[in-house]
Amino acid sequence: MTYSPPPIVPAGMTPPAEPLMTPPAAPPAASPGPPAPLEFVLNGESAVYAGRGDARLLDVLRDVFRLTSVKCGCREGECGACAVIFNDRLVNSCLVPAGMVALGSVTTLEGFRETERFAVLDRAYARFSAVQCGFCIPGMVLASEALLRRNPRPSPAEIREGLSGNLCRCTGYNAIVEAVTLASKEGEGLW
């Protein structure tokens, strides 16, 4: 199946090579009214986006902001590979229109990996070899973070429930559940 992404980067505008937190103003829109750029907080810094408001946040994060930890697996909320944290809640960025995050806060793995809690999860995932191909892992790690924020000492059943929206075809999940269990112990007090 071929996939044509919506034109997030306006024609004639070369995608930036570096992460671009403040893209230049978009060319005048064809639709009535001047384009009002959208402002939001992205990984703790202020960001501005001026493309289509109904574009998937997934595509905007990858193609405009070059945050490629956000993976595209299914584009229908079934796999969790594109999961990000929006206003303190885990969401599938494929199902979030860019316009929805106006004035809100979005965290991707690029932002989360600067934290001490990430370091704990990173060590725990490595300890149990819970990463194989790695495609699901950014979403899986953010789902782990979202779970631990609300439930710092989850049972294995609660971990499976918390990660139930994140599909992994490599590990069979057991190693991931053990990794999150370990992280919750090692990260005592962090969550």
Binding site: G53, D54, R56, C94, P97, M100
Partner: peptide, 23 residues
């Protein structure tokens, strides 16, 4: 009107949709 978007965003459209966010 868009509340959560989990149904509306499954489809894509050629022309831009103007959403009214209810959240």
């Amino acid at each position: 009107a868009l509340a959560g978007g989990t149904d509306l965003m499954v489809g894509e459209t050629e022309t831009e949709r103007r959403f009214l966010y209810l959240h």
